[in-house]
């Protein structure tokens, strides 16, 4: 498989050379053609800057970016066959939906009849038939999002970049759009690069994902691999809020003298008597589908997921914890 996008030791520093802000710092990355790739990380971690490096709105201060094998160091955004769905959608307020969607064709000099027909096709693709005459201001947030998607797809881009496109939508709509985006991607076969800070979104949608932290990639892999085998404390905590165990606690839990990750859902809460691990309940967070218990144990706070239907202990109660030893994952990224 060819690489749609390649980053070779790419950096983007801002500010003076003496004290640079390293938005992106030495990133190596390969995004396979036709894949759904997620860039996941907290705000300020460099994921959006990476996206803007692909679209050409940022220029790297170091390294090489290749799109389908071609070095794009010298290619301005309008010549990259890469389109973006912007976070704020950036629909043109003075044009109706049809002209917004047909914009990419208009600037290429396609005649009005052809581009109107194409715009209508794209609107049908995002289930907005008949909305062509409306102005963006007359649409709901979800509809604007679809128009932005249709507009970005009209040029048949080689890579579609999505910058937190679902961030402004409410939960229900967001889940529906996640499914639709996923279906659209597999239907069109276009490479999607998706930036998000929502780990649930990244895990459920991506074929592979990169976790960003402080301008660098902390881990890259399939969602299942990243979730099951986080390399570092940061990844373990950011993706799925795992229990990060210091070496001595790992030891107490029956593992080696190393940093380890233990998923809260892998911990079973039992009666306190006759188990090796017992602690005091310090907090309970009700989640609907269950409860998340905080248990103080050997001086460390450990989170355990209690499925709904099980009796919830009182705060201050002593409980036992049990788990399958295979669930204890030692992180090789930590020394």
């Amino acid at each position: 498989m060819t690489a749609a996008v390649e980053f070779l030791n790419v950096s983007r520093h801002f500010g003076p050379a003496s004290a640079p802000v390293k938005a992106v710092d030495g990133v190596d990355l390969t995004i396979a053609e036709g894949s759904f790739f997620a860039m996941l990380g907290p705000s300020g971690s460099g994921k959006t800057t990476c996206l803007r490096l692909i679209s050409g709105f940022e220029k790297p201060t170091g390294g090489t970016i290749r799109i389908f094998g071609q070095d794009v160091g010298d290619i301005p955004p309008n010549r990259r066959n890469v389109n973006t769905v912007f976070q704020d959608y950036a629909l043109f307020p003075h044009m109706n939906v049809r002209d917004n969607v047909g914009y990419g064709l208009m600037v290429k000099g396609v005649d009005r009849r052809t581009r109107d027909a194409r715009a209508e096709e794209m609107l049908a693709l995002v289930k907005l038939e008949g909305y062509g005459d409306r102005k963006p201001a007359q649409l709901s947030g979800g509809q604007r999002q679809r128009v932005a998607l249709a507009r970005a797809l009209v040029n048949e881009p080689k890579v579609l970049l999505l910058d937190e496109p679902l961030g402004a939508l409410d939960l229900k709509l967001r889940e529906a759009m996640q499914d639709e985006l996923k279906a659209l991607q597999s239907r069109l076969g276009i490479t999607f690069v998706f930036v998000t800070h929502d780990q649930g979104e990244a895990l459920s949608m991506a074929d592979s994902l990169a976790v960003f932290n402080e301008g660098r990639i902390a881990q890259i892999g399939t969602p299942a691999a990243v979730y099951a085998h986080p390399r570092t404390r940061f990844v373990a905590d950011f993706v799925g809020s795992s229990n990060v165990l210091p070496p001595e606690v790992t030891r107490a839990f029956g593992g080696p003298m190393k940093w380890a990750s233990l998923r809260p859902e892998m911990l079973r809460v039992t009666a306190a008597d006759g188990v090796a691990l017992a602690g005091t309940v310090t907090g309970i967070r009700y989640l609907g589908a269950g409860s998340r218990l905080s248990v103080a144990l050997n001086g460390t706070e450990v989170a355990a997921l209690l499925p709904a239907g099980q009796p919830v202990p009182e705060p201050g109660a002593t409980v036992g914890l049990a788990f399958d030893p295979a669930a204890l994952h030692v992180m090789e990224g930590e020394g």
Partner: peptide
Amino acid sequence: SMLEASADLGAS
């Protein structure tokens, strides 16, 4: 972002 969207869609 509106200027970027325009350039992104291929406008000079």
